[in-house]
Amino acid sequence: MTKTRLAALGAAALMLASPALAHVTLEAPQATAGSTYKAVLRVPHGCAGAATLKVRVQIPEGFIGVKPMPKAGWTLDIVKGKYDGSYQLHGNTVTEGVKELSWTGNLPDDYYDEFVFRGTLTDAFAAGSTVYFPVVQQCEGDKTERWIEIPADGKTADDYESPAPGVRIVAPAK
């Protein structure tokens, strides 16, 4: 129990330390490998004041069985393709699936919204690593915000202006 509480406090401290409030981020900052992950993409603003017309997410290799949650007022598009590797899902071998998701609609700069999808984090991800979901935000007037920067070794998302939203993989609880 004490361990859990410490972990929770640690996580809270991590959240507090991250100044990523103005960035496109994921609501749950960590997940366990081999588990289902509900990704809630938080879009806090448009592109330099322009309304968001499209939100595109690239699904990282190893995140399988992806299903987006439909969203009122937004059209969903799913791009499927072959994975680089093959994965086991409920006893079946999976070699292809969702590679990209996109929502098309209208989100004025003054509003905040969330875009939700879910999938399985395979064992391909080691505990301690971070899985990134690069996001491209397309706005009115051909403006674009790309949240696609993946920190280099020794750097964190804080070192970048437009980091890709990421989720940290933690070891499963014993």
Partner: peptide, 30 residues
Amino acid sequence: MLRLLARIVLAAIGGAMLATAAFAHATLLD
């Protein structure tokens, strides 16, 4: 007691995050 304290702290942090989540960085337009 400790657990309660931890919950309060977590709730406070969560609240603070929610309150600021909608803020954005300023951008130079022109």
